[in-house]
Design a protein around this nucleic acid. Structure first.
Length: 270
DNA sequence: AAAGCTTCCAACCGCACGATT
DNA sequence: TAATCGTGCGGTTGGAAGCTT
């Protein structure tokens, strides 16, 4: 009953892929498509398990992958999507043609999380981090000394290399002891929440998910590779990307977010 | 110059769930 | 119907590269 096991791991290679392995996998998939990942390594002459091949293809070899760092606009969009979808990276990635869930997850963990913390927001809930009142001045909060994790947070922020962190700290002119008045923080939070409300992101996401997620999915569709020629696939992708871009234009005004962000930095810097 | 530290990201692992036998 | 597979997903890790002291 049942099927054969996916792969026995005895004798299979692990770790970083070599250029030769990449070429083998890429050539095989481009020439034959994918019927079954389990068979791919055998037919392509690779000593890898199917799962590993799938991951390598999706995250690195796929021809429609978008290379390079994330733009500020993309980062902002990820933040917004995460506030509604949580850690559902594949769902988030579906809104970014050419980006992988792994890529977005990595970027979130290394950059965006810190950026949100700098804004005084909990990266999990997107709610304001507990405001700690300073006993000497009731109108001040210490952004960097939240509970017992204060030291760690401080360390993380101090070592930030992202433009967001540096900009924020430099604009505030207080790299070591960034303090906001309670008034500032309340303004900041109100702006952020107002922005989220105005975007009506949840309805947009549910609409997108219901109508078109599969078309925009970052995962390469096996059906596409099997049933469409390269030209047809490319055309389909182009249409999907255009539709996606159009839907973005009609739904969101990123200029307004950038302005808001500048305002937030201004608030912090004043 | 080099040792130690931090950041980044490719890759792995285990689980969930629908499909298949 | 139960057992197992195939695939996708999210969390985690290891090591290379870059940075700091």
């Amino acid at each position: 009953m049942g099927r054969q096991p996916c792969c026995d791991k005895v004798g299979l290679k692990r770790g970083p892929w070599t250029i030769e392995e990449d070429h083998k996998l890429m050539n095989f998939i481009l020439n034959n498509g994918i019927q079954c990942w389990r068979m791919v390594p055998k037919l392509a002459g690779l000593l890898r398990c199917g799962k590993s091949c799938r991951l390598r293809w999706i995250n690195y070899l796929r021809p429609d992958l978008k290379r390079g760092g994330f733009t500020e606009m993309e980062e902002n969009q990820i933040m917004q999507l995460h506030s509604c979808l949580g850690n559902r990276w594949s769902k988030i990635a579906a809104h970014f043609p050419g980006r992988t869930d792994n890529e977005i997850k990595n970027h979130w963990n290394t950059r965006i999380k810190k950026r949100l913390k700098l804004l005084g927001l909990d990266p999990v809930t997107h709610k304001p981090i507990e405001l700690m009142e300073n006993t000497d001045d009731k109108n001040e909060i210490n952004l960097l000394s939240n509970s017992s994790k204060g030291h760690q947070e401080h360390k993380e922020i101090k070592s930030l290399d992202s433009h967001a962190g540096k900009e924020l700290l430099e604009s505030a002119g207080k790299a070591e002891d960034t303090k906001l008045t309670l008034e500032d923080t309340t303004d900041l939070i109100n702006c952020y929440e107002m922005f989220c409300r105005n975007m009506d992101l949840e309805s947009w996401i549910s609409q997108e998910t219901n109508t078109s997620t599969s078309s925009y999915s970052s995962s390469f569709s096996l059906d596409d590779s099997n049933n469409l020629s390269m030209g047809e696939s490319a055309s389909l992708r182009k249409d999907s990307q255009q539709k996606w871009a159009d839907s973005m234009n009609s739904t969101l005004s990123w200029d307004s977010f950038n302005h808001l962000e500048q305002d937030l930095f201004f608030l912090l810097g004043k």
